[in-house]
């Protein structure tokens, strides 16, 4: 261990001198965009020398820490309401979008099982209990569906993924809206809870007949079979960055950037899509605000390729321009 320490100290001595010059920004919050942010900020430091230390402590943590002033910016998977933003004197904007995939484990059935959105809601309400329910069979002629019971899995930890997913269920089913509602944590009518994506994926992978939802990246990177979902306009769309781009394009984004575009119109829109947000105090020190605005501008200009490679969805260019203009005003 001493050797390791020695080695480490040498490395430190070498790197410390080089990196001391630039500014350091600390950020904290949502776990969902952490892989992308760490990639962006790594490259940003290489190119500009500005260190951005982002840590994923959860959206709630991100919001409370940016309010408490222990970090320079926060990140949240769900936007804050206008009133809360005003009270905390925060500015929020979407950084990137993402999609949530509905995954399942049916022996002999690959990806692409067609599920109408109403069917998904009824499964999560506990109204559809068997895989050979007429509602499922009707949309999947030729697929061998047995009377296997459906084991519902959901996220147990409060998460932006759950927030987007329950927004979607609310849009689809009035019963869901009335009885359950939406949020990062809800009272699930049925099913068992797994912690994190891997918790849900663990249940789905090991339990025949299980259904769950995970981030798009998790489904594609870990080769779990996922469903093609019916959207508002009657099309069936597989989860993908393109489907999410189509949905985001239809989103109406107000001045406070509070946007919800689950179950969006458009034939190619993937129905479970949403933004993830950054939050910054309007009265951040000018030098830090300038650095922050520079960082966001850089990510908007040069970050789309990285985002797509990791299955995140860049936000529309028009939106980017609006945000850049707003940040410019804040940084003066």
């Amino acid at each position: 261990m001493k050797k390791v320490l020695l080695l480490a100290l040498t490395v430190l001595a070498l790197t410390a001198g080089a990196a001391q010059a630039g500014i350091t920004l600390n950020g904290a919050g949502a776990t969902f965009p952490y892989p992308l942010y760490s990639k962006w900020f790594y490259n940003y430091e290489k190119q500009t020398g500005t260190r951005v230390n982002y840590q994923s402590i959860g959206s709630g943590g991100g919001i409370s820490q940016v309010k408490a002033g222990t970090v320079d910016f926060g990140a949240s998977d769900a936007p804050l309401k206008a009133k809360e933003l005003r009270e905390a004197n925060l500015f929020q904007f979407p950084m990137v979008a993402g999609a949530v995939a509905v995954v399942y484990n049916l022996p002999g059935v690959g990806s692409g099982l067609k599920l109408k959105s109403q069917t998904v809601a009824d499964i999560y309400l506990g109204k559809i209990k068997k895989w050979n329910d007429p509602a499922i069979v009707k949309d999947n002629p030729g697929v061998n569906l047995s009377a296997m019971p459906i084991i519902v899995a959901h996220r147990s930890d409060g998460s932006g993924t759950t927030n987007i997913f329950t927004w979607y269920l609310e849009d689809v089913s009035s019963q869901w809206k009335l009885e359950v509602g939406s949020g990062k944590a809800v009272k699930w009518p049925v099913g068992i809870g797994g912690k994190g994506n891997e918790g849900v994926a663990g249940v789905v992978r090991q339990t025949k007949g299980a259904i769950g939802y995970v981030e798009l990246a998790y489904a594609t990177e870990n080769k779990i079979t996922y469903a093609t979902l019916g959207n508002r306009d009657g099309g069936f769309v597989a989860p993908s960055t393109e489907g999410c781009i189509a949905a985001a394009a239809s989103a109406k984004v107000p001045d406070d950037y509070y946007a919800r575009f689950t179950y969006a119109p458009g034939k190619d829109s993937y129905p479970i899509s949403g933004f993830t947000y950054l939050l910054v105090p309007r009265n951040l020190e000018p030098s830090n605000m300038k650095a922050f605005a520079g960082l966001v501008g850089w990510a908007f200009e040069k970050g789309d390729k990285d985002a797509k490679a990791l299955h995140y969805v860049p936000i529309p260019d028009k939106l980017k321009d609006r945000i850049k203009a707003d940040l410019k005003k804040l940084a003066k």
């Binding site: 430190l12 990196a19 904290a28 982002y54 402590i57």
Partner: peptide, 11 residues
């Protein structure tokens, strides 16, 4: 440690 030592991407 999440809410205390936090973490750091750098040295």
């Amino acid at each position: 440690l999440l809410f205390t030592a936090f973490s750091n991407s750098f040295w």
